[in-house]
Computed example of a mutant assay.
Amino acid sequence: MSSPRTVLVVGGGAAGNAATILLRRAGIAVDLVEARDDWNATAGSGITLQGNALRVLRELGVWEQVEKAGYGFDAMGVTTPDGTVLHVAESLRAGGDDLPATLGMQRAQLQSILIDAVRAGGATVRLGVRAASLDQDGDGVTVRFTDGSEGRYDLVLAADGVGSGTRAAIGITDRPEPTGMAVWRVAAPRPAGLTRTDIAYGGPAYIAGYCPTGESTLYAYVVENQRERASLPASSYADEMRSLARHYGGFWPEITAHITDPDQVNYTAFARMLVEGSWHRGRVVLVGDSAHCCPPTLAQGAALSLEDAWVLAGMVSAADVWDDALFQAYYERRVARVRPVVEASVQIDRWLLDGVRDADVPGVTGRTTAMLRELP
């Protein structure tokens, strides 16, 4: 009897965890290595998951836990800076009519749910470990790890994020490029009556918005021009975000009152990247943010990463031969879907930076969401 095929997943974020769960379900032996000692030390306060992300989470078998932990809704409001509601739009359910259009949840809770599913699936997990070197031949990849150990794999999935060291190690030189914007985010209690995302354009920030993440929680964000991190000591984060947020009305005064702890505020620059031509070299394949990233103007980063994992795991599990043709087919299938999302996200970012007052943001959002409703 031939031994089962083996896969190394580098990175234990959403894409890596999803791929691991699906590959183990198909009977493939999986080792997962995560650079952090604390696997659940997820930066960020909350996450917005569109319907196409929820569809993949259902395929992973974790939808019931996600639904219970998060807060689903089907509308988005647009307000003036003083909180006056200008328009409330029903959002298209990109994951299908039986899933909410959008669900917000705390990032750490999503990570915890995925971690539990990875462990239940029987993958071997090592924390605080990186892939130090990869030596490929026609049959597989020999990987040496930072803890001094070595392993031999039929396939390596690079799911180690936008700053992927694996991407660089296989000679792909693409790197994320800043778009010029950055976002402040914070978790806060959810005021009574706040039941959807509202976005205010204008005021001292380009965007001020919030998303409910549970029965009593939300995360709030304000988007501004990117600043040099050297000018932003971490101790000033709460003051900096509060100085922007205090100019907004509606639910914002109640939210702003809780922006007090700089350790609970994070600052993230917007970036774009789309690796072109292929997402593999030999038997090392990029998945998720290691292959693409975009501004969160359409809230599709996690969704696209989860889709990558679902598609790649399905193709790998069904294939008798793992070769260039298979991995190129994965790239061509995914890039046709990812490229318009990256381009649309960057376009909205650019309209805001350029102050385009008649920008067709609703049209771009609607067309993109309609495209994402189709199966990846």
Rank of each mutant, 00 (worst) to 15 (best):
T80G: 05
I348A: 10
E177T: 09
V346L: 15
P81T: 00
G77P: 01
A131L: 02
M371H: 03
A108F: 12
G16A: 14
T297C: 03
D174I: 02
M181W: 05
G83N: 06
T48W: 03
A220S: 14
T166C: 04
P191Y: 15
G16I: 07
V10K: 00
L127P: 12
D358E: 11
A108Y: 12
L286Y: 00
V78H: 08
G203F: 08
P340C: 03
A43L: 15
R283A: 00
A15H: 04
G288F: 12
W63P: 02
T260I: 13
A123Y: 06
T213I: 11
Y267W: 08
A89Q: 14
V361K: 07
D358G: 14
G355V: 06
S45T: 15
T48D: 08
G51V: 09
V33K: 00
L114I: 12
V7L: 04
A43D: 14
A101Q: 01
D37L: 12
V316N: 01
C211H: 02
S236Q: 07
I47M: 14
D147C: 14
G121L: 03
F327Y: 02
A15W: 01
G44Q: 03
D139L: 15
P340H: 02
R185D: 09
L54D: 14
R185M: 14
L32W: 01
L23Q: 03
R55G: 00
L353D: 01
L99S: 00
P362G: 10
Q347F: 15
I47V: 13
T297V: 04
L22H: 09
A108P: 09
S164D: 08
G301S: 06
I348F: 06
V62Y: 03
L232R: 04
T213R: 15
I28C: 02
G128R: 02
S216F: 14
L352K: 01
A257L: 10
T179H: 07
Y201P: 00
P204K: 06
S317F: 01
A123R: 07
T146Y: 11
A188G: 13
R36H: 08
L99Q: 12
V143H: 05
T166S: 11
L326Y: 01
R367H: 09
L54C: 02
S278C: 07
R130M: 13
W310D: 10
L49F: 08
E34M: 09
M315D: 04
Y267Q: 05
G46N: 14
R227W: 10
A75H: 10
V156L: 12
M76C: 06
F73Q: 03
Y206Q: 06
L326M: 07
I207C: 13
P376Y: 13
G77H: 04
S278Q: 04
S216W: 15
R350G: 08
A234H: 12
G202R: 06
S216L: 10
A302K: 06
S45G: 14
A158N: 05
Y267F: 14
N52Q: 05
V78Y: 12
R246V: 13
M241S: 08
P253L: 13
V341W: 00
R227G: 07
Y331I: 04
